[in-house]
Design a protein around this nucleic acid. Sequence first.
DNA 1: TGTTAGCACTCGTTCATCGGGAGTGCTAAC
DNA 2: GTTAGCACTCCCGATGAACGAGTGCTAACA
Lengths: 344, 344
Amino acid sequence: MDGLDERKVKILDAIIRTYLETGGPVGSRTISKYTDLNLSSATIRNEMSDLEDLGYLITPHTSAGRIPSDKGYRFYVDHLLESKDKEISDMKDFVIEHTEKMEQVLKQVARMLAKTTNYATMISSPKYSGNKVKFIQLSLLDANQLLAVIVMEANVVKNKIIPLRQRLDNEALFKLNLLLNSTLNGLSIPEINLGIISRMKEQAGEYSDIVGVVLDAVAESISQEELEIYTSGATNIFKYPELSDSRKASELIYTLEEKQQLKTLVSDSLNSESETGIQVYIGNESPIQTMKDCSVVTATYELSEGVKGTVGIIGPKRMDYERVMDSLKELKTQLDGIFRKPSG
Amino acid sequence: MDGLDERKVKILDAIIRTYLETGGPVGSRTISKYTDLNLSSATIRNEMSDLEDLGYLITPHTSAGRIPSDKGYRFYVDHLLESKDKEISDMKDFVIEHTEKMEQVLKQVARMLAKTTNYATMISSPKYSGNKVKFIQLSLLDANQLLAVIVMEANVVKNKIIPLRQRLDNEALFKLNLLLNSTLNGLSIPEINLGIISRMKEQAGEYSDIVGVVLDAVAESISQEELEIYTSGATNIFKYPELSDSRKASELIYTLEEKQQLKTLVSDSLNSESETGIQVYIGNESPIQTMKDCSVVTATYELSEGVKGTVGIIGPKRMDYERVMDSLKELKTQLDGIFRKPSG
DNA sequence: TGTTAGCACTCGTTCATCGGGAGTGCTAAC
DNA sequence: GTTAGCACTCCCGATGAACGAGTGCTAACA
């Protein structure tokens, strides 16, 4: 494959694994001792030179060892990484209590993941593209304000306070509630089309304004605008010298703090479905410029039909892909379990 | 005052102002040119030596200039800082749109403040210690789940999904709603005492469990647990070399990210009321250990009677106290304006 | 032909050295 | 009380030597 014979593959594998551990350039002598096939450092040198010509390795300066190139990492991730059935990770020990707010759960997941992996993490709130309206309730707060509560299928609750321009008596309120629920319940957002909207507004008569606001709120609760992203463990990057210089660290942490750019990562990862739902971005493969010295591993989780979110791990290129990918797989299944419980 | 004659005060003032600008130790020659009272560097040297003996200045090493000590800063903040009526800051240009969620407003305020000041910022959600229940509504989500919506006086909305153990028909629901509202509306948390609680539970009969859960939710919505803190501009600290070394930066940013410790700062600042509502913590004066190389300026804002929060600015000790304190004063008044609007 | 030992060479890192600059403290003169 | 002058201290940056890790190449070996 790709001009690599078996021995070259073995050597490349050894080099990358060693580099993942040490973080420093790895020399020929190290490998000559490391591998089972007993070869002298000189032979290794020749092979390493070849591997460099083929683009898998890089010489940072004339007389250091070699470090993997992006292509090298890519090869490692694609071919060399066997997902061994590890003992089930200690993640279960982190009892994620039944918190009533999804926001809390997400924050906690991000924090836990950062703690166990020692990398920076992010998690997006699920996007309810196919989610259905379950329940809508309007209530009068006082003479001038109306409170709308919208509950979606996955028990996601949204509140909206609507200023009232006209008087609204209890009877009208009751009718409006009936209208909203009977029409919208069980519908997903794409199903609420213009026909339905105009018919509802017609039936609502003088209160069509209110219907409009409620519908906007429903739409909002699924729109990309509302995509919340939580991050944690940003300071973990200081554990890796290659990311700790103040320029890089500042840029990276800023990206994690501002979160705006992370949204592109989320949509990218949601769109490019791999079979496993796990995506690896090495260096420049990431859509985010400031992460060109990092690797990002993302996983897609799915609460229920079409309700998806992304969880990601950001670390140095020499991150422990094996462990990270295992953790994410484990987390995927756990997340399913958590959210199936009745919770908001 | 404090063994300082007028000339010493002038010199101290000059030294601190120069240091705020340059960030480096300031020497006698610099000051001898800077001040209006024409004195030679030798004279200044003598005075500086006195100021050091009095504890206002520090010699970082034998032959650098002097830098202010914490005591020096404190004197500067307390006596030397005249709050000049600056042109109204450009803060007004940042139109804080009418967002329906308070969370959004707070985040935006933190971000804006970080951008204009170039320091790290934090803002706490208001604590509703004296806030009153305005409206409570229970609705059946389905046969097994009940949705409780609680609205407090400042239009703060809280949702709670309650699993049902027993069947609940519409009539019972109506009665429960009536009971909750008629009893609790207009009451502040301290007013909801054991007497009221037990009377309500008695009246609720077989549904007393539900009343309990609702009351818990009410309590939660004001408890310290629920104190949310938003931060922004953490990476601004990299603009100040004295904070940028990776150990300090990492600790600081971690504190800002984790937010747990910031809560002590919030309560401290809420408790120690100054007339202006503005509090300055210099170095070790701050309750947070990791901020011993920083100064923190906090302001208390008040939405309505007893509904208070804290906004704070974290920067190097040589922060521009004048500008920061002005910004915070300005912000205080603006925050009032924002939250008086009907919003959640 | 593939493998290995040996050697010269390169380059980053560390450490000590050294001069310049900035600033102080002291003394003596005004 | 103020100032000029001077010796002294210390930081900082540049310079260079010693060192170690690692390579590439060549020649010898199986």
